[in-house]
């Protein structure tokens, strides 16, 4: 290809670059700058305020706990589930994956509503248990209620991510190990698990980030009442009581830093898995 042709092709990148700049980079940089500024100029006061407010810190703690616990439970459960799928033929496995994908779009406000139907104050289960005279003293509008919803939207994602990692383990490796006298348990302990471990860890960080950024389900369930980092940002920027956009920006930047650390970690771990899986 001659030079002018290559330059012409390069023009195709211009609209993309403009969109990326104006609807992603510039707003985020602007947000970063506004988190460091007040009417007098540069300041750390919004970060000081965020990090010294026990209410905001509590929000971060709740978000972290909810994200870690929901990611962990979803990961363990779907690891067992994906392992169980080995008992089925490939067409059956693919159908199971489609069913799991069907539910992957079911999140946010619709999902919160579905759980209200099941477990809300006059939900299906709540009424059923009431009529048996049982009182579980469980509230959907609490941390454990949110946990159930978070596990729900983590499961399909976890299955989708773990399936290819798990099936990257080649049958030949199992056969070779068996020929050399290893039992299935030994294969998994000595060969299988070490190989897929980085992939599992990468999946965990993606699930963690997925939950950290979630907003809609908690908002639909409890409005701004349940204290999560994302909910704090939402109420500070939209001004349910009074808007403090600079403080919202500072919290958003802090959340963003957590996300970036998570994503870098998962990228690194996934690359490591790929390398290990392609080594024969």
């Amino acid at each position: 290809m001659n030079m002018s042709g290559k330059k012409g092709v390069l023009l195709i990148l211009v609209p993309f670059a403009l969109l990326m700049t104006f609807f992603f980079l510039v707003p985020l940089i602007h947000m970063l700058m506004s988190s460091f500024s007040n009417s007098d100029g540069f300041t750390f006061e919004h970060y000081q305020e965020a990090l010294s407010s026990s209410y905001i810190l509590q929000g971060f703690k709740n978000s972290l706990a909810l994200s870690v616990v929901s990611a962990f439970i979803a990961l363990v459960v779907s690891l067992l589930g994906v392992y169980a799928m080995t008992n089925f033929s490939e067409p059956v496995r693919e159908k199971l994956l489609i069913l799991s994908n069907l539910t992957s779009n079911f999140s946010g406000v619709p999902l919160a509503f579905a759980f209200i139907v099941l477990l809300g104050n006059s939900g299906l289960f709540t009424l059923a248990l009431d009529s048996f005279g049982w009182d579980l003293s469980f509230s959907l509008y609490s941390w454990s209620g949110l946990l159930l919803i978070y596990i729900y939207f983590q499961l399909p994602l976890s299955i989708m991510l773990l399936y290819p990692i798990y099936y990257g383990i080649q049958q030949q490796w199992k056969d070779a190990a068996a020929l050399l006298g290893a039992s299935p348990l030994m294969f998994w302990r000595k060969i299988g698990l070490p190989i897929i471990l980085p992939g599992i860890a990468g999946t965990f960080t993606i699930l963690f980030a997925n939950a950290m950024g979630a907003y809609a389900s908690a908002y639909a369930l409890t409005g701004s009442n349940f204290n999560l980092a994302a909910i704090r940002i939402g109420s500070l920027i939209s001004g349910d009581i009074f808007a403090q956009p600079e403080l919202a920006s500072a919290i958003a930047v802090l959340l963003g830093v957590i996300m970036i650390i998570g994503m870098l970690l998962s990228e690194w771990l996934i690359k490591k898995t790929r390398k290990d899986l392609s080594k024969r």
């Binding site: 992603f24 707003p27 985020l28 947000m31 980030a209 950290m212 950024g213 979630a214 907003y215 994302a230 940002i233 939402g234 920027i237 956009p245 919202a248 920006s249 958003a252 959340l255 963003g256 996300m259 970036i260 998570g262 994503m263």
Partner: peptide, 9 residues
């Protein structure tokens, strides 16, 4: 990596 809640701010 950046969820809607951050982008909206």
């Amino acid at each position: 990596a950046f969820p809607g809640i951050i982008l909206s701010v």
